[in-house]
Computed example of a mutant assay.
Amino acid sequence: MGDRTRIDDLNVIKGVSVGLSKIVGELERLDHKEQYGWNREIVGHEELTDRLNDFAANWDYKRSKLEEELKKLSGIAKAASEAYESIDTDLANAVRKNEKKS
């Protein structure tokens, strides 16, 4: 059976899509700028404040890019599971049709 797709394989692919979507949702809920609001009065040191703000801006940018890639991967996994299900349905219908002819 190594060259066949099994139903549990499809469930795994669907699970990947759902899991990636959940990760994206969690990342989207994070808002570091609001949470930390780095300023000199809070941090007490101008250079450290600047570095913290640079880090937060970089994290927001990288997080946004990560979210985009995860959304793409989730979509690919979803499309793959739908395509495999469609193929499976078509094959099952063809087998049933062939059995009726026999």
Rank of each mutant, 00 (worst) to 15 (best):
K71P: 10
K72P: 02
W38L: 13
W59V: 01
H32R: 03
E99F: 15
E47C: 06
D50Y: 07
S64Q: 04
K65S: 00
G2T: 09
E82D: 15
N39S: 06
G75W: 02
G2A: 06
I76G: 01
K22N: 03
E68V: 12
S81D: 02
R40A: 11
I76H: 00
V18Y: 03
K78T: 09
R96W: 04
E41S: 04
Y61F: 06
A94Q: 08
N11K: 15
S86M: 14
S102Q: 14
K101P: 03
E68M: 04
A57W: 09
D50A: 12
A83Y: 14
H32I: 11
R63P: 01
H45T: 03
K65C: 03
G19W: 10
L20K: 08
D8S: 03
E85V: 10
N58M: 14
Y36L: 13
E28H: 05
Y61C: 01
L30K: 03
K33R: 06
V24F: 01
L91W: 01
K97D: 09
A56Q: 13
K62T: 05
E67P: 01
E85K: 05
N93A: 02
D54T: 07
A56L: 08
E68A: 10
H32Y: 14
E99P: 04
A79I: 12
N39P: 01
E68C: 00
T49H: 05
L27R: 01
K101H: 07
D88F: 09
M1D: 14
K72M: 15
G37N: 13
E47V: 15
E28G: 02
E68G: 04
R96P: 07
L30D: 00
L30Y: 03
W38N: 07
R29K: 05
